[in-house]
């Protein structure tokens, strides 16, 4: 295993201090602290909503997903194990999985899988509202910039594979078909991409 495992240091929002703050909020939420729950909402809602909206392309559905995720955070916060990751990554995983579930339901209903546009990964066609100019919004833009910069250090084929894997809701084989590449190639690109992304993010946060 790579020597850095277990010592990951990433830029916001999971720098150690912020991750600890998130953990404190989640623990207080587990004890029924509504103010802490509201704090979690204010910390996480923007990236979770943006992720759901990017996957679903529908603001109302994205709202429903985020609503469902926060209710789950409230109801299951006592089950959270920090051994498995940060509260933020847990929330992102739930959001992504639920949004993808909806996409797959849609696809099954409409049988539109073949219409999924290859490499439709643009950042611009969002339908999202412009973020407010609050301090949190500015901070969010900085975080997004840091991750995008890290992603830009990857070769194009790895960027494409990682983004498609994260946002599309396609299976491994569907991603391979979509990219017109052998399955093994896609798996290797995802692995190399995530490893480089980790290294890039670690590098950015080091002095």
């Amino acid at each position: 295993m790579p020597p850095r495992s277990g010592t990951l240091t990433l830029p916001d929002p999971i720098d150690p201090a912020q991750a600890q703050h998130d953990l404190d909020l989640l623990r207080r939420t587990a004890k029924g602290d509504r103010a802490a729950f509201a704090g979690l909402y204010d910390r996480f809602s923007r990236p979770l909503f943006s992720t759901a909206l990017r996957i679903l392309g529908d603001s109302r559905e994205a709202e429903d997903v985020v609503h469902d995720v926060f209710l789950t955070l409230w109801q299951r916060s006592m089950e959270f194990s920090e051994d498995r990751g940060s509260p933020f990554s847990w929330a992102v995983t739930m959001t992504r999985n639920r949004a993808i579930d909806r996409v797959r339901q849609r696809r099954r209903r409409a049988e539109i899988l073949a219409d999924t546009p290859p490499a439709d990964l643009g950042y611009g066609e969002t339908g999202a509202n412009t973020p407010a100019d609050s301090a949190e919004a500015l901070q969010a833009r900085e975080r997004a910039g840091a991750v995008r910069q890290a992603l830009s250090t990857l070769p194009d084929d790895q960027q494409q594979a990682v983004e498609l894997a994260f946002f599309s809701g396609l299976t491994q084989q569907e991603i391979a078909t979509n990219l017109h590449q052998p399955l093994g190639t896609v798996k290797a690109r995802i692995r190399r991409g995530l490893l480089k992304l980790r290294d890039a993010l670690v590098g950015k946060s080091q002095p």
């Binding site: 990433l10 999971i14 923007r46 990236p47 979770l48 909503f49 943006s50 992720t51 909206l53 990017r54 996957i55 603001s59 990751g85 940060s86 933020f88 990554s89 847990w90 992102v92 995983t93 959001t95 992504r96 950042y123 611009g124 969002t126 339908g127 999202a128 509202n129 412009t130 973020p131 407010a132 919004a137 969010a140 833009r141 975080r143 997004a144 840091a146 991750v147 995008r148 890290a150 992603l151 990682v162 983004e163 994260f166 946002f167 992304l197 993010l201």
Partner: peptide
Amino acid sequence: GQLAWLAPAGD
């Protein structure tokens, strides 16, 4: 989890 920040920002 960090990939969530790649989604176009929307409030």
